[in-house]
């Protein structure tokens, strides 16, 4: 696939730039402000390549979106929350309850569902990277949109309550829960990384390209990253764990009136 190949050559070059940037980042006597550093890197990528890495993923996602599955259908036949074929603003209202799957789904699990039920792929045929790219493409239609996640359906309310419970669950060999870091100590730093609470908009910048890792992260990837960093094995993708936590975080961010960043975002 052409875009696929382009993406990797460009990213290979970018990785070099990122590495140099990262060394400057950690060798400074005074730590750089991480937001300023991300903006500086973003500018550098734009000037050097004229395109941001996240946009390459979105491009690839677009191609996959219009690819026919074994059933002969493309993802245009999938309802992502506002009816078949509508992409504008759907990411801003997810996770929500879907009648056809009788399940509350976030965008990633919705893509995974429709690739099976609409397009006829078998689960084993669905690559994680493809779901990530398609998610990035669809989320780009909610760039800077106001977050409108508000649980109403009984299944959504139940999912929100489960998310809140997971949020406060302390477990593992680090005794951690999402809440201790992201509520009690929001505004403080772990090492050099500033931590936000849902009320401060936590979760509003995914999917994003993380230059420090040279990888695209979706919300599910980001949740897994935090679980791993607190010594809890990461939950499997498209599970209710991700959906419940995402619903909880984004509903809280919505109550506080937050909007998404430019999507896909560019971050550290």
């Amino acid at each position: 696939m052409r875009t696929h190949k382009n993406r990797f050559t460009v990213l290979g070059l970018l990785a070099l730039g990122a590495l140099v940037g990262l060394m400057a980042y950690t060798q400074q006597a005074k730590p750089l402000d991480p937001f300023e550093e991300a903006m500086r890197q973003r500018q550098m990528y734009l000037e050097t390549f004229g395109i941001l890495p996240g946009e390459l993923f979105a491009e690839e996602g677009k191609e996959l979106f219009f690819r026919k599955g074994p059933s002969g259908k493309t993802l245009e036949e999938c309802d992502f929350g506002k009816g078949k074929g509508v992409l504008e603003g759907v990411y801003a209202i997810l996770p929500k309850y879907f009648l056809d799957s009788r399940r509350v789904e976030d965008l990633e699990s919705r893509v995974y569902t429709c690739m099976q039920t609409v397009q006829g792929f078998k689960p084993a045929e669905i690559e994680r990277d493809e779901v990530k790219a398609i998610t990035t493409y669809i989320a780009s239609f909610s760039s800077k949109a106001k977050i409108q996640v508000a649980p109403k359906h009984p299944a959504e309310l139940a999912m929100y309550n489960l998310g809140r419970e997971l949020w406060y669950t302390r477990a593992g060999a680090r005794d951690m829960s999402c809440a201790v870091c992201h509520d009690q100590y929001a505004g403080q730093r772990v090492r050099l990384s500033p931590v936000r609470s849902p009320k401060q908009g936590l979760g509003n910048e995914w999917p994003a390209y993380r230059f420090e890792e040279d990888k695209l992260y979706t919300m599910e990837d980001r949740i897994n990253f935090c679980y791993e960093s607190i010594a809890i094995p990461k939950p499997e993708f498209y599970s209710d764990v991700h959906i419940a936590l995402t619903l909880y975080m984004l509903a809280e961010a919505a109550k506080a009136g937050h909007s998404f960043e430019e999507l896909p975002f560019f971050t550290r």
């Binding site: 593992g172 599970s239 764990v241």
Partner: peptide, 27 residues
């Protein structure tokens, strides 16, 4: 909740479900 934890996979569920008494009280 336990069903959700199991959906996250065996290893995830195992750690999340083996809270000690202190962790359970704090949660």
């Amino acid at each position: 909740l336990e069903a959700v934890l199991h959906q996250g996979g065996h290893e995830f569920a195992q750690v999340m479900l083996s809270q000690d008494k202190g962790q359970a009280l704090c949660s």
